[in-house]
């Protein structure tokens, strides 16, 4: 059981069961937390109002199970469908004005470093494609140019879902949406490549179809942001409502879109500094394993 996450005994009888479950069987301070805790431990997300079957919910679950130190993490969200989940997670979070998320995260990360110099404090931005690539692009890029040490996650559903389907910079060329009836005239913005050129030490583009891969990528991105430099993850979380899919079709849509040659085929960029950091981690793990068996 967690040590730092405890409940004042005086409050036990008045706190809701969900809260007690989090304290008793949540995964705070668990060194090996991950998706394998699903089904037996209490997850850090309560009931929320995303559409039934929404892949954003799947990705959110996998991410919340994977972040390495939830008790020492502050997440920054923005307006969009994800903002329906943020009030329901058991991790500190800030709702920024639409598009400002990477500016808020910059100040927050710096302030946390001053306030808690001896403690790990991770900052993770999680926002939609409209927030990351259109309205917040200035803040997104400037934080990378300045090599701010936090992770930026973009839930890429290739349109503005929360406001009914407007065109986004990450929408595919030629795509028609309810509120973009002419069809997109420009290419999908190549944000992963831009991220790499703008100073990110780790970049990944993927879907949320494999929890083990999401877990690996999230852990790498958060640890690299902690020790090396900015990291960026772009995850395809199709808006089944806006692309006309049924509630149970989101997973297949993600699988189809990550096939070889498709736009969400898994790709990763790791800077030489980040690679040597990861190599160091792997060596340490190996040494620990050997020490444990001998």
């Amino acid at each position: 059981m967690a040590n730092r996450i405890q409940i004042n005994k005086e409050f036990v009888d008045i706190m809701p069961q969900d809260y007690l479950d989090l304290v008793e069987s949540g995964t705070f301070e668990s060194p090996n937390r991950g998706w394998k805790d699903f089904g037996t431990a209490t997850e850090l997300i309560a009931e929320h109002s995303l559409c039934a079957g929404c892949p954003e919910s799947i990705a959110f679950r996998h991410i919340m199970a994977s972040i390495p130190n939830p008790e020492d993490t502050v997440m920054v969200g923005s307006t969009g469908c994800t903002s329906l989940v943020f009030p329901m997670i058991a991790v500190h979070n800030i709702h920024s004005l639409f598009g400002n998320q990477n500016a808020i995260a910059t100040g927050l990360k710096r302030a946390l470093a001053v306030r808690f110099p001896d403690r790990i404090k991770d900052v993770i931005v999680l926002a939609g494609d409209g927030a990351t690539v259109d309205i917040g692009l200035d803040m997104t890029l400037q934080s990378w140019f300045r090599k701010e040490r936090f992770t930026t996650i973009c839930f890429d559903n290739e349109l503005y879902a929360n406001t009914g389907g407007q065109e986004s910079g990450l929408m595919q060329k030629g795509f028609l949406a309810k509120m973009a009836p002419v069809g997109k005239r420009f290419d999908k913005v190549r944000l992963p490549e831009i991220a790499r050129e703008s100073g990110c030490d780790y970049v990944a583009i993927m879907t949320a179809s494999k929890p083990s891969l999401v877990e690996k990528v999230i852990k790498q991105a958060v640890l690299i942001a902690r020790e090396v430099g900015p990291t960026y993850i772009q995850i395809y979380t199709p808006c089944i409502l806006e692309i006309g899919k049924q509630s149970m079709e989101g997973l297949q849509e993600m699988r189809t879109s990550e096939a070889p040659g498709e736009r969400f085929k898994f790709r990763e960029f790791i800077s030489p500094e980040a690679q040597s950091f990861l190599d160091g981690l792997a060596e340490k793990k190996k040494a620990e394993k050997i020490a444990a068996t001998t």
């Binding site: 089904g39 037996t40 009931e47 892949p55 679950r61 919340m64 989101g250």
Partner: peptide, 28 residues
């Protein structure tokens, strides 16, 4: 399952169980 804490593992019987109040009926 897209919903958190919705399908649990009954660790005695070792079977999946649905927490109905959290199920949105998506059929995934």
């Amino acid at each position: 399952c897209p919903e958190a804490n919705c399908i649990q593992l009954d660790s005695q019987k070792m079977k999946a169980v649905i927490v109905e109040s959290r199920c949105k009926g998506c059929e995934l």
